Amino acid sequence: MPIRHPARRRAAVTAATACVLAVALTACSGTTKDSVKQDDSTVGTDTSTAASADPDAPLKKGLKLAFLPKQINNPYEKIVDEAGIAAAKEYGATGKEVGPSDASASSQVSYINTLIQQRQDAILIAANDPNAVCGPLKQAMKKGIKVVAYDSDTAKDCRQLFINQASSEEIGRSLVQHLGEQLGHKGKIAILSATQNATNQNTWIEFMKDELKLPAYKDMELVKVAYGDDADQKSFQQTQGLLQAYPDLKGIISPTTVGIAAAARYLSDSSYKGKVVLNGLGTPNQMRKYVKDGTVEQFSLWNPEELGYLGSYAAASLASGQITGAEGETFKAGTLGEYTIGKDGEVILGEPTVFDKKNIDKFDF
């Protein structure tokens, strides 16, 4: 069952957070909006904010939605997508999941082209790269297909909405804060990320680095950002490599569900268990045994089922003309209630949950 957080339902992005996030996204991106071909630069506007929203319009029946995750075998994204597909049935639509088996920058492009040919009503994408997917996504919008990014954003003019799991600043800073408390704010630390181009990972890491500049962390040193490419075995090997290169390493932050599980597996069977603190983002079901055997004290995540559910209703609202993606518009997301669209088409699900021995058995996902 999805976790319910009634107090969060009217979530909106504050101007300050949105501005900081916009700067971080620009810093992480390989290209800028100015580098996009001129004839495509207004596609997002033409298909969204230039249109007129009808908040009283009913959700259309028979809509076709396609979820395109970073990679088809990612257990976290499987939860998100299955929840979104189930939500589609609530309002008389059909959903499906398609995607690559690897998380390379351009691996999603061919799938977008196929979905355009299939005339899907909406494409929901967790982007492996913010810019590599822009060309085909803009073509999709030209043909009237709605585009919703979730979990990991595209460049903002390549979609109408971005469904963000939580404030990017809150995620990045809180992970450093939690690890700092566990380490007594002393020692060398490393980050085990997903791919080098992942928008969400890079944004969180920028906020982590900014948090580490504060006086409270003067005795903590970030020695390495490693990349496991959201592949279990590579993430396992990267963890091993970090500890071999830095035998005095005190902590690891892994803001990826694949990475934190692989790192925990390595630590649990090594001499570093209980000596190296691991924190990051994971699901309760994959991390439960590592919490109970003492490998991991705590980790964080939002409810991925709710993320998929919210994304599904947002896409349907776009495809039905209830919203265009403009700041300030509102829509209802089934049992989750009403949401408000923030700056740059961002919709925030809510605050992440911290899991530990005391509460982990209350969750099943």
Rank of each mutant, 00 (worst) to 15 (best):
Y150K: 10
A86T: 08
E97K: 15
S300L: 05
G328F: 04
A190Y: 01
D269E: 08
K33L: 15
A122N: 02
K146C: 03
F355V: 00
G241E: 08
N74K: 11
Y91A: 04
V147W: 02
K273S: 08
I253G: 02
R10S: 12
A315D: 14
A22W: 13
D293W: 08
A50I: 13
K138M: 12
K64G: 06
E306R: 09
V176T: 02
S254C: 05
G342V: 09
T324C: 08
L310T: 11
K275C: 09
C158E: 06
S104F: 13
G99A: 04
Y91R: 10
E82T: 15
K78R: 15
I163C: 10
T203C: 05
D210F: 04
A126Q: 10
K70E: 03
A226N: 11
A149F: 05
A263Q: 05
A245I: 01
Q71E: 10
K142V: 13
V291Y: 02
Q201V: 02
A194L: 00
A57E: 07
G135W: 01
K96V: 14
G350R: 11
E338N: 13
T114E: 09
W302E: 04
M287I: 02
G259D: 00
Q238G: 10
D102Q: 15
Y111N: 11
V13L: 12
W302K: 03
K289L: 05
I323L: 11
G337W: 01
A333N: 04
K146A: 01
Y217S: 06
V176R: 00
Q118P: 01
L242W: 00
M287Q: 08
C134M: 10
T353C: 02
K89D: 15
D81M: 12
K343H: 12
Y76T: 12
T340E: 02
Y217N: 02
T335W: 04
N359K: 07
A155H: 07
L301I: 03
T324Q: 05
L222Y: 09
K78Y: 12
E181W: 09
V147M: 07
I163S: 05
V20C: 15
M208V: 03
G334T: 06
D46C: 11
I171P: 03
K289R: 14
I253T: 10
D344P: 08
I3H: 12
A319N: 06
K224D: 05
S106A: 14
D81F: 05
S52H: 13
T31I: 14
D356K: 00
N285T: 04
Q237F: 09
I72D: 03
G241P: 06
